[in-house]
Design a protein around this nucleic acid. Sequence first.
DNA 1: GGTAGTAGGCACCTAGAGGTGCGTAACGCA
DNA 2: TGCGTTACGCACCTCTAGGTGCCTACTACC
Lengths: 147, 147
Amino acid sequence: MATTTAAQKRAQARAEYDAFLAQCPSRKLLDQIANKWVILVLAALRSDGSHQFGADCAGEPRSMRYSELSRLLAGVSQKMLTQTLRSLERDGLITRTVVPTVPVTVTYELTDLGLSLHQSIRGLKAWAEMHMDDVLANRATYDNHVA
Amino acid sequence: MATTTAAQKRAQARAEYDAFLAQCPSRKLLDQIANKWVILVLAALRSDGSHQFGADCAGEPRSMRYSELSRLLAGVSQKMLTQTLRSLERDGLITRTVVPTVPVTVTYELTDLGLSLHQSIRGLKAWAEMHMDDVLANRATYDNHVA
DNA sequence: GGTAGTAGGCACCTAGAGGTGCGTAACGCA
DNA sequence: TGCGTTACGCACCTCTAGGTGCCTACTACC
């Protein structure tokens, strides 16, 4: 049939939209920071070593060793830490430095780019700390109303 | 043995850290906006109907119908659109209004809370548009160097 | 000699996000 | 009479992010 059905047109539009999304810079960034550990690593590298995710404001950028990060982000598996660090290094957000001591020592450090990203993310963090209580309250009343 | 091994201590720390993460407001927010369609819906409800994800700056908040959203976000499945809208409604970020016309009409609209969140997110978007080229360049040279 | 640390690589496995497809009930349109 | 629309619900299926466990060499401590 020469007449394109509505369904066909929709499929077409969907394909185009997916392609658009795939090369959208905002989407790419989002995919990256949505990874469970990227933000934690960023925050850790910027922190003073405190365990609090929320306490990353005071310290200045700091270089950290692999094992140090592993202890600080106590929940991370070795695999995921390595993977996350590699990914961040690839994107130029952190630098990796190998020091050939007796047991090799590797330190990671935020680049300026990584630092600026972290600044932007802190905007979101601020929103979360200000409004998340409201959100949770809404969620509770909604659930109550339904149940 | 009464002596807790290092491995046990690590497991303990991991459990605590996971518990901490689970109730961290920033993390909760992140989990929400990491969902593939939430930000798109937010942007759509704020936009003037343009197809460009990046062109959501001009318009003012606007109410939209289910089918309208479905067409605008051409890639979304009906299931995911419904799910996303429910989730946003639950969190008080959008409102759902049912108009009992002949085929029921449902409109969605941003709340002030949703609007403020979108503002914060636009900070990230700005970063992406400014720096994503650098990131991609870094990525390319990194891949080149390795391969 | 047994246990711990340093910085990972490799392979397997699971849980959950997200996609596909089908059905609804009432109506319009050709 | 048969397809299209409106706004979903439900069941099944896939794909992959992330977790777990086991391996490396070399060293240091007890």
